[in-house]
């Protein structure tokens, strides 16, 4: 009985139930919703959001927050495309991905130095670097969109895991880019749960002071976290550009609140030390559903922001309130 109540109180379970309810309601109002093409579209829409969300989850687990990752993604994506178009149009796509991830990691390292090196508050630092990265990109690199992206990147977006035609004649396909989301999840799972580094990330999120006393290199761990998020943002950026077949420097920025919403919905706590990949992926699924399919439920698209905001407040408010009640009962 208590185990049941525990499972029900978990964010993952709640989010899964909300998703289920959403899907059932959407299917009832429009039977075409529950079909392979819709699911493939949603999967496709969750690639970039999902990779970014995994990065943000790692930061939250370490006890920080990062809002600059979308600017990093746009910066890395645009610079890489520009570099490729101007100097090396024949670089294979994995080369482009490596360049973009390297740029992302470098920008992440700047956050890392400011946060781990100077001990500045993470929200304010990343708000500042968000403006710096974006301002630098648009002032000095370029503000015009590149529509003739290298053919290698275009070819990458055409590589499909599955493709087919539904009974009613609608096409569906799932690009290989989805495999990158799966890959990122696996790599992050290994880092978080199978290495000392992962233990260190959880430990400093739980308590910096305790982590320091058991001999964890707090600064080095924090530095790694921001570099890792930067690299993931670079990857998400280049995948976004490849799939959109255009590098738009104004893209992605503005998405950060939705990504953070997905992660906190999935149960990761802002005070650090707690977060799961399952929860994060469920959170991403819910946000993608709200962003793409709210209309199916008969809710106008203009209400999308309200719905996401309310979901954040409920998703974070419920556990916070439970924790507060538990604490006052213990006292």
């Amino acid at each position: 009985m208590t185990r049941w109540r525990e499972a029900l109180g978990r964010n993952e379970t709640l989010v899964a139930l909300v998703i289920l309810a959403f899907v059932v309601a959407a299917t009832l109002s429009d039977p075409r919703f529950f079909s392979i093409p819709t699911m493939m579209d949603l999967a496709r829409a969750s690639i970039v959001l999902g990779i970014l969300a995994v990065g943000v989850m790692v930061v939250l687990v370490s006890g920080g927050i990062d809002v600059s990752f979308t600017a990093i993604a746009a910066f890395a994506m645009y610079c890489t495309t520009l570099l490729l178009v101007t100097y090396m149009p024949d670089l294979p796509w994995y080369g482009a991905f490596a360049v973009s991830m390297a740029i992302g990691a470098t920008l992440g390292a700047i956050n890392g130095i400011l946060i781990a090196g100077f001990g500045l508050p993470t929200l304010i630092v990343t708000l500042g670097t968000l403006a710096i990265f974006r301002g630098f990109l648009l002032t000095f690199v370029g503000s015009r969109l590149i529509s003739n992206i290298p053919s290698e990147m275009r070819d990458f977006s055409r590589m499909m895991i599955v493709r087919g035609t539904n009974a009613d004649g609608s096409f569906y396909s799932l690009p290989w880019a989805f495999a990158f989301l799966v890959g990122v999840v696996i790599v992050t799972w290994v880092i978080l749960y199978k290495t000392m580094l992962g233990r260190a990330i959880f430990a400093i999120g739980g308590s910096v002071e305790s982590a320091r006393r058991v001999g964890i290199a707090v600064r080095r761990t924090q530095f790694f976290v921001y570099v890792y998020v930067g690299a993931l943002a670079g990857l998400a950026g280049i995948i976004h550009a490849s799939m959109a077949r255009v590098a738009n420097p104004f893209d992605l920025v503005g998405l950060e609140l939705s990504v953070i919403a997905a992660v906190v919905l999935g149960g990761a706590r802002l005070i650090g030390g707690y977060g799961t990949l399952t929860g994060t992926l469920l959170g991403v699924a819910l946000i993608v559903l709200v962003r793409n399919s709210l209309v199916v439920l008969g809710i106008p698209a203009t209400w999308q922001m309200v719905v996401i905001g309310v979901l954040i407040l409920i998703g974070t408010g419920l556990p916070a309130w439970q924790a507060k009640r538990a604490a006052s009962r213990a006292a």
Partner: peptide, 23 residues
Amino acid sequence: WLGLPPILATLGSGLVFTGFGVA
């Protein structure tokens, strides 16, 4: 009363307020 961290509370409520403006 609910004990939310101010960052999250105002991030979520900011979206709700802006969203009402849109709606």
